[in-house]
Simulated scan of single mutants.
Amino acid sequence: MIADDLKEQYYQALLAKDSEYEGLFYVGVKTTGVFCRPTCPARKPKFENCEFYETAQQALLASFRPCQRCRPLSHPNHVSDVVRLLVEAVEHNPEKRWKEQDFKDLSIDESTARRQFKKRFGMTFVEYARARRMGLALKNIRSGHTVIDSQLSTGYESSSGFRDAFSRIMGAAPTHVNDGQVLKASWIDTRLGPMMAVADEKQLYLLEFIDRRGLEREVERLRIRTKSAIVPGMTPPIQSIEQELEQYFDGTLTTFDTPLFYLGTPFQKKVWEQLSLIPAGETRSYQEIAIALGKPTACRAVAQANGANQLAIVIPCHRVINTSGELGGYGGGITRKNWLLQHEKQRSLQ
């Protein structure tokens, strides 16, 4: 049974289409007989016509049917048929330069493709296809192929145009990539909403909720500090963390084994190591973390290091609360922080 004050909170989240509440509740609309996720784009019902449920199963058992617009039985931002078809087409011929006629041949509206890719990947389809071509060019260059060969194979007749496009997408000019590295970014669907994972072939560098404020700047800082190109793709650490997150949300896993890369100062790394020692189902205050580090007056520095954590959930900064017992801040949102703590507490009691 959901408390009345929580129902009002959920209703306000529904009106705001607040993605922070994804996976926390579903709303059944008595006038239509359907149930929706918090971010449903449909016209919002009156409060008195809403029934709130913690799971989709509860809504189904209450005789509500799933909404056809927000599809509450699939992951948030589930890949549409248009996105899936175009991704497959790019993989079939990744060096192809897309033109208007190519969309017509697939019976796909170009503006629809642009909009859906922007929502899913943070880039238009043309940018996605270009990034994929550039990824191949980067691979060729690192394998010993000349820049001109890679330029021509990806469809650029102008060397300046190739360099500009390469630098804009990859963050490095093609003659410099041998001195740097490539990080790959992938989208991971979770119960609490989509997350972005960034990793190389060996370690995970970043894991954040897509709607975290300032995520773009966070990714840009990562690119600059590691002197890396960041492109769409999949690596073993991303595959590993995707599987572990699924187990974590199912309640069958509390510690993570995916190899991590800590990008921070020596003090920040010590704080993150302390966070990793907090057992699931328990919390520590900033003061307690500072004392454990032998720096009892460094509460503010501990809080700043906590906020600088780029590996959400895996480095459990959500387990750190204020000395007063209040939750304090969290990059993914207080609602998610509370859910994570309750989730872990329930699992630790089983």
Rank of each mutant, 00 (worst) to 15 (best):
M1K: 10
I2K: 01
A3I: 15
L6M: 12
Q12V: 00
K17H: 02
D18F: 02
D18R: 04
E22G: 01
L24Y: 04
F25R: 04
V27F: 09
T32E: 10
F35R: 05
R37I: 04
P41N: 10
E48L: 11
C50N: 09
C50L: 02
C50H: 05
A59F: 08
Q68N: 13
R69T: 06
R71E: 13
P72F: 06
L73C: 08
H75F: 14
P76A: 02
P76I: 08
V79L: 09
L85P: 09
V87Q: 15
V87W: 12
E91S: 09
N93A: 03
P94E: 01
E95Y: 13
K96Y: 15
L106V: 07
L106T: 06
I108K: 07
I108M: 05
E110A: 15
R115A: 12
Q116K: 12
K118L: 15
K119R: 12
R120I: 07
F121W: 11
G122A: 07
T124F: 02
V126C: 01
Y128V: 15
A129M: 08
A131S: 11
R132V: 10
R132W: 04
G135E: 12
L136F: 08
N140V: 01
S143V: 00
G144E: 03
Q151Y: 10
T154E: 11
S158Q: 13
G161Q: 11
D164W: 01
A165H: 01
G171P: 14
P174Y: 06
H176W: 05
D179A: 14
V182T: 14
K184F: 12
A185G: 03
W187H: 14
R191A: 04
G193M: 06
P194G: 02
M195Q: 05
V198H: 11
V198I: 15
L206Y: 14
L206R: 08
F209W: 14
R212D: 01
G214Y: 04
L215C: 11
E218C: 14
E218N: 08
E220I: 09
R223C: 12
I230K: 15
G233E: 03
Q239V: 12
Q239M: 15
I241A: 00
Q243I: 15
E244V: 09
Q247L: 14
Y248L: 01
D250H: 08
T252D: 11
T254W: 03
T254Y: 01
T255K: 14
F256E: 02
P259D: 13
F261G: 10
L263S: 11
L263H: 10
P266N: 08
Q268S: 08
V271E: 01
V271D: 02
W272C: 10
W272N: 05
E273M: 09
E273H: 10
Q274F: 03
Q274K: 13
L275M: 13
I278S: 05
A280L: 03
R284S: 10
E288T: 01
A292L: 10
G294E: 00
K295N: 05
P296E: 09
T297W: 00
C299A: 15
C299G: 07
R300H: 12
A301Y: 02
A303Y: 09
A305T: 11
N306Y: 07
A308W: 08
N309R: 05
A312P: 01
V314L: 06
C317I: 02
R319I: 04
R319N: 03
I321V: 14
E326L: 07
L327A: 03
G329Y: 14
G329D: 07
G332E: 00
G332D: 00
Q342E: 08
H343G: 01
R347C: 08
